[in-house]
Design a protein around this nucleic acid. Structure first.
Lengths: 188, 188
DNA sequence: GTCCATTATTAGGAAGTCCTAGTATTTTGT
DNA sequence: ACAAAATACTAGGACTTCCTAATAATGGAC
């Protein structure tokens, strides 16, 4: 199983392509470790660990998102839409107001409008007026939406979540560390 | 200093807004921990840790990116363009071929074209023909581009990297864990 | 020497993110 | 009770990402 299938943009960058052995070695090394040395070398030592951490996060996210999107693609949903589907799936009635979806997912309200537009076009959710507050809309999962959420979860569980590319210990540590980070940032 | 300034989309979702104490408590809890319990409860226990890890990564990325973009905004560059600038900044001559930029940043070649278009419009880089291979283009940092890279780095160092929202130990652990994950995914 | 495959780049389009405004509705303050 | 403020959502625009398909130039096979 090629974990990296979607990220082969480098088209065979090898030592031959580059010329000097030193530069070839630099390409084989972790670019983030290299950047960290540059940071220290430029007198930004106290910012170097943070730079490495944030940059690692960006790259790891890029890798993880690519795997997730590739898994979801055959089902015709993106990760953004999958998140909406699962939020509804776990709610009591399978329906939630737009506003609550946006706040739970921590995205801009217009992003939810966009996602719901596409989900509605695909017949996976419906928009209905809120009975008490006519400003609000209630989004409800259709049977097809529920089935899609089920299939998508099965695919993600077997193809991504069960093999996250980390040891059991690393997985737990990662969740804890990022949990502390999210908590400090006010995420919950 | 409001670390979370850009992510206040929830507009004051509080217990009053929701109604029942149980639901209010659910909102105050970590949504990822809640999702993890749901996973276990639905018989997906062996995928639950991986789900939590990947989801944490997505959220932490969202938080970090928002901070970075907010810091960079006054300078008129995005994080994508900052990365291009720094790659050039650290190269020997301040210039690199398009292809190498794409492979280093692990993004699609068309994304580099897009970023370079905007950097060129802003006068931060120039496009020149490659002397040996007329298929290729060499991108070079202008003095303005170098100055912008310098200012952007200073801003990021003080406003983000020096306070990543994690303890020193967590920062190091995070870099190591994500390093292992990236390595397994073929990132370097 | 030509044809063909490869490589580098651009063009155009889909999808996601955000933002600023604008409309409709509800709540609040006097 | 009525005007003002707050809230929920949508419209349109900017930017980023990816993708597929075309164009231009190089290098290799025969």
């Amino acid at each position: 199983m090629d974990v990296n299938a979607k990220r082969t943009y480098d088209g065979g960058m090898t030592a031959e392509t580059v010329g000097t052995p030193a530069l070839a070695a630099a390409l084989d090394a972790d670019p983030i470790a290299t950047a960290r040395e540059q940071w220290v070398g430029h007198g930004w030592a106290e910012a170097a660990p943070g730079m490495a951490a944030i940059t690692s996060l960006m790259r790891a996210h890029q890798i993880a998102l690519a795997r997730v999107e590739a898994t979801l693609k055959p089902l015709g949903v993106s990760f953004a839409r999958y998140e909406v589907l699962m939020l509804l799936r776990f709610s009591k009635r399978g329906s939630l107001p737009m506003k609550l979806i946006a706040s739970r997912l921590q995205v801009h309200p217009t992003s939810v409008t966009n996602a719901v537009d596409r989900l509605e076009s695909a017949g996976l959710v419906t928009r209905e007026a809120h009975p008490d507050d006519r400003r609000a809309l209630i989004i409800t999962l259709t049977p097809e939406g529920r089935a899609t959420a089920e299939k998508a979860t099965a695919a993600l569980n077997t193809e991504v979540f069960a093999q996250p590319g980390l040891s059991t210990r690393d997985v737990e540590q990662l969740v804890e560390i990022l949990g502390r980070m999210r908590h400090r940032a006010g995420d919950f």
